[in-house]
Each structure stands twice: as structure tokens, then as C-alpha cells.
């Protein structure tokens, strides 16, 4: 147990910075997409449109807190908070630096997996509670997609666990001193990346809210701050995923010259940008293709990767 962890300053700092960064990502994403698509993006509010986030925030607070009369009210309110809370909770186990972090948990990876599966409740409940056909279909799609990819996600990172021999994220980082796991676990990394995108329902795998088919999927009926929670929750999820990818495959805080925190933020930041880039660059597949791809390719690939890793680990350990 690292006594430095879990200080009040850690808690406040992590929470504040995650929420701040998530909010800022709204602007970052729009700007970046605009740049790649050769247009301007938000640039009116403040210098370079930086104050756009604040403006959006204020707007949300003052929008009507509308709960549809036909909805299942309690669940309707509960749904968006789930994704927000679980994604934030995920940061509890992220090893920012050897000295920064909320908790050192032996089963950190399992904790992360558990929380990421909990987030599916949010979409299902939102879809169900809205009492709207589009929402329901969107919710179902989201559920099916999320749970499917969760299976592959779990399997894909087991290679990492095998090589490091632990579920503890800090020990996993330490185990990468020699070589980042992205090298031996390249397949695992690819599967995990795809799974994470599908898991957070980001474009291009945003079939549950594909506006051409389903308007906005499970959050069709949401507006105001509750919509904002879904919105922010998604960005929090992106940050969390990037942080986990950095931790599992890119050596977390490890790196020469610069301080650990900087390395960590850098790796996470690259991950976030990569996510946005993917959104801008790739088209959306058809839903049946998405599911078939997952079950027929990713799952067997993950399993084979596991077997191969096991053999390699055993062979190298003598």
C-alpha cells in the first residue's frame, strides 16, 4: 500500500482535472474535426472559441429541466447519472504516477472492467425509460453492442495480465520497464482499441445513436443537463479509455527525461486525439457487420492471442 496515494489533494485534483478536461474536449473535438475537415469550428466565443465550453455550460444550466410526461420518471433521471458516475469512478484505479492516484487496488483491472460494464445500464435504462420507439431501439442496440464488445475487451487484455502476472495496474506499469506491452500484445491492443470504441459508442461505432436511422438513439428524449451528462460522460469515457490504454500498453508514466505525470498526460492526450481522429476519418459500418465482426473475428482472435501469449509466457519462464 502506497501511503502517498489517496490524499485529499489527489482526490480533488483528479476529479477537477478530469471534469475540466472532459468539458474542454467538447471544444477540442469540434476544433480538431473542423481542422481535418478543412473548416473553422467554434471560434466566436473568446480567443479561438475557447470560451465556447463555458457558454455551453451556462446554456445547459438554464435550459428547461424537462422530463417527458410519458417517461418513467425516476429511471429517466437516473440513467444519465449512471454513465457519468461510473466513468468518473473508473479513474480511482488509474495510476497517474507512482505517487498520484486515488487507490492502489490489487484487482484494479477487474474494477475497471466492472465499471465499464455497468455503464450499459445507463443506455438500456435511458432507452426503456424514454418510452419512445427510437430510444428503445437505440437502447437495445447499445446494449447488445456494449455487452458483446465487453466480452472481447475482457479477453483482449488478458494477454497483458498474463505477461505481468497481476491485475494491479501499477504493477502492470512497472512490468513494462523493459518493453511496452504494445509490442508483444499488438493484437490484444488492436482488439482492445476497437472494443473500447464500441464500448463507449463513439463514432464510427455509434450505431445506437446513428441519427440517420434512430434520430439520436437512446437519448432522443433527453435535453438540458441530463443530455449534458451523457455528453460529458462520453468524453470522460474517452479520457478513461485513453488512460487505460496508456497504462496497459504504453507503459503508463514510464518514460525518459520528463516527469512521470507529464509522460502519462502526454500518452493519454495522444490517445484522446487519436479517438477524435478516428471519428473524423472512418465511416460507420452497418450494425450487422459490426456485430458479426465482433463475434466472428475479434472473439476468436482474442482467444487465440490468449493461447499464444500463454505459450510464450510459459516458454520464456522456462
Amino acid at each position: 500500500m502506497n501511503a502517498e496515494l489517496g490524499q485529499a489533494s489527489d482526490i480533488v485534483g483528479i476529479l477537477a482535472s478530469v471534469i475540466f478536461v472532459a468539458a474542454m474536449l467538447i471544444w477540442v473535438e469540434r476544433r480538431l474535426l473542423a481542422i481535418w475537415q478543412d473548416r473553422l469550428g467554434p471560434n466566436r466565443v473568446g480567443p479561438l472559441g475557447l470560451m465556447q465550453v463555458a457558454a455551453d455550460m451556462i446554456k445547459m444550466f438554464f435550459k428547461e429541466d424537462w422530463i417527458p410526461p410519458f417517461a418513467d420518471k425516476g429511471v429517466f433521471v437516473l440513467a444519465p447519472t449512471i454513465v457519468f458516475i461510473t466513468m468518473l469512478l473508473g479513474f480511482a484505479v488509474i495510476p497517474f504516477t507512482p505517487g498520484i492516484g486515488i487507490i492502489d487496488f490489487n484487482f484494479g483491472l477487474l474494477y475497471f472492467l466492472a465499471l465499464s460494464s455497468l455503464s450499459v445500464y445507463s443506455v438500456v435504462l435511458a432507452g426503456y425509460a424514454s418510452n419512445n420507439k427510437y430510444s428503445l431501439l437505440g437502447g437495445l442496440r447499445a446494449a447488445a453492442q456494449t455487452v458483446s464488445y465487453e466480452v472481447f475487451m475482457g479477453i483482449s487484455i488478458m494477454g497483458v495480465v498474463m505477461q505481468s502476472g497481476t491485475f494491479n495496474l501499477r504493477e502492470i506499469v512497472e512490468a513494462q520497464r523493459g518493453c511496452w506491452f504494445v509490442v508483444p500484445q499488438f493484437f490484444g491492443f488492436i482488439i482492445f482499441l476497437i472494443a473500447v470504441i464500441a464500448e463507449s459508442r463513439r463514432a464510427p461505432l455509434d450505431l445506437p445513436e446513428a441519427e440517420q436511422e434512430l434520430v439520436a438513439g437512446f437519448h432522443t428524449e433527453y435535453s438540458g443537463m441530463k443530455f449534458g451528462m451523457f455528453f460529458v460522460g462520453e468524453y470522460v469515457a474517452i479520457i478513461l479509455s485513453s488512460a487505460i490504454i496508456a497504462t496497459l500498453f504504453f507503459g503508463g508514466w514510464l518514460g525518459p527525461w520528463l516527469p512521470p505525470l507529464v509522460w502519462f498526460c502526454l500518452k493519454t492526450g495522444i490517445g484522446v486525439v487519436f479517438f477524435i481522429l478516428i471519428r473524423g476519418a472512418l465511416p460507420r459500418p452497418r450494425y450487422d457487420q459490426l456485430m458479426a465482426f465482433g463475434w466472428k473475428i475479434l472473439l476468436p482472435a482474442g482467444l487465440l492471442n490468449l493461447v499464444a501469449t500463454g505459450a510464450v509466457v510459459l516458454a520464456s519462464s522456462g
Binding site: M1, L5, G6, Q7, A8, D10, I11, V12, I14, L15, I19, M60, F61, F62, K63, E64, D65, W66, V77, T81, F84, I85, L88, L89, A92, I102, I103, F105, G224, M225, K226, G228, M229
Partner: peptide
Amino acid sequence: NLLPLIIYFGAILLITAAMLGGAYLLGQ
């Protein structure tokens, strides 16, 4: 051992409540 996690969870709940509550109070 779990104390920091609990505090963290409490903090998140507070923020969520503040966001929803604020919107409820301020919203038109």
C-alpha cells in the same frame, strides 16, 4: 483501505447532484 475510494465516490455524487440540482433550479 477503501476510504479514499469512498471519499472519491462521495465527491462524484456531490458533483452529479449539484449539476442536476442546479439545472433543475435554474432551468426555465
